[in-house]
């Protein structure tokens, strides 16, 4: 059973928000605790899936934004 505090640290770890000293301790624990290592692996997998689930707008929407900005520059 992984402690809640450790699970929270794991979340901070995979999002690069864990302090360096805590990071070192957690990485050591990951080499010794299979359950923790599997939890970390699952979190990283979900991160990767969420990255892939990001959607891209059509280029026309981007062109509209850039053209609007340019039109303001021309006016000033």
């Amino acid at each position: 059973m992984i402690k809640t505090s450790t699970q929270n640290e794991l979340i901070q770890y995979v999002y690069n928000e864990l302090a360096d000293d805590a990071c070192e301790q957690l990485e050591l624990a990951l080499t010794q605790d299979l359950e923790l290592a599997e939890s970390c692996s699952d979190l990283l997998m979900m991160q990767q899936l969420l990255d892939g689930a990001a959607k891209a707008p059509h280029q026309r929407a981007i062109d509209n934004i850039l053209n609007y900005s340019k039109s303001l520059s021309l006016q000033s």
Binding site: A53, A54, K55, A56, P57, I62, I65, L66, S69
Partner: peptide
């Protein structure tokens, strides 16, 4: 520079 900024962040903003 703005074009770079928009292209860098458009997907996250859109999502």
């Amino acid at each position: 520079a703005f074009e770079q900024l928009v292209n860098r962040h458009k997907n996250k903003v859109y999502t």
